[in-house]
């Protein structure tokens, strides 16, 4: 029996008095495409930040391929095949859009600080970056400064940069936010296409219509814990899930 790609065991994180993640457990099998939904403040983003390592767990374990990575540095996790796109966009403002992606594509060149001094040429990585910008539909902004771009572009830049790492597990935090209906549709298709090539995907998204359309499995987080998971339609029919969303209409449920 092989270990699942990712296993979260009883994760807990408190920020002051707030229990942002409160005993969350979750398993992602190799090659799966999972949607992660939940009301605002449910702890979805925090859970992703735990997986990538920006936030440290107060309790619990994170395993990648059975290996305990709970205490591993963020950059080491990235090199093990984890990549994430931020909900709050964080482009490198001193770099062009193209170089934001090229730098990630050159992760083998930047792996060792001293060896990084031996390489100057960026053309291979820039060519790869251009492909990825085209893939997510912002190839026209390759030479722009990130500071001058609208949110929809920066969201897709986040995704292109994550893809440049050629991850085994792609963590996406609301990549469709800031896109119009047809752009969102197209990008959701792109994500589904990336999944088809063998990448395991965990997608946080408030756009339920697109989530229901592309995800094979749905996980619902509420108040820091998983309250339902399984086949998307069955999950959405679950009374617990309906209750969690009560008084808070799901965004853009077309």
């Amino acid at each position: 029996m092989t270990a699942p790609l990712l296993a979260l065991e009883d994760l807990r994180v408190r920020f002051g008095g707030v229990a942002a993640v409160d005993g969350a457990s979750l398993t992602l099998e190799h090659g799966t495409f999972t949607g992660l939904i939940g009301p605002n403040g449910a702890g979805k983003t925090t859970l992703l930040r735990l997986i990538i390592g920006i936030v440290r767990a107060d309790n619990g374990r994170i395993r990648l391929d059975g290996r305990d990575i709970t205490k591993l540095a963020v950059s080491r996790r990235a090199r093990l095949g984890l990549a994430m796109s931020h909900q709050i966009v964080r482009p490198f403002r001193s770099l062009s859009v193209l170089d934001n992606v090229a730098l990630a594509a050159g992760r083998r060149r930047t792996r060792d600080p001293l060896l990084s001094l031996l390489h100057v040429k960026r053309s291979t990585e820039r060519a790869r970056a251009r492909e990825l910008l085209d893939l997510v539909g912002i190839g026209d902004a390759a030479d722009a400064e990130p500071a001058k771009l609208p949110l929809g572009y920066l969201k897709r830049l986040e995704m292109a940069r994550a893809l440049a790492l050629e991850p085994r597990l792609l963590l996406l935090d609301e990549p469709l936010a800031g896109l119009n209906h047809s752009e969102a549709h197209r990008l959701a298709d792109t994500i589904a296409g990336i999944h088809q090539t063998g990448t395991t995907v965990l997608l946080i998204e408030h756009n339920l219509a697109e989530v229901m359309r592309v995800c094979r499995r749905l996980v619902v987080l509420d108040q820091g814990r998983v309250i339902a998971e399984g086949e998307p339609r069955a999950v959405m029919a679950d009374p617990k899930v309906r209750a969690a969303y009560l008084g808070e209409a799901p965004h853009a449920a077309a």
Partner: peptide
């Protein structure tokens, strides 16, 4: 190139695998 990223945003630099 990597220095630029570190100077700009350390957390994000880590996320793209820069030590």
């Amino acid at each position: 190139f990597a220095f630029d990223a570190v100077a700009d945003d350390e957390d994000t630099a880590r996320v793209i695998g820069i030590g």
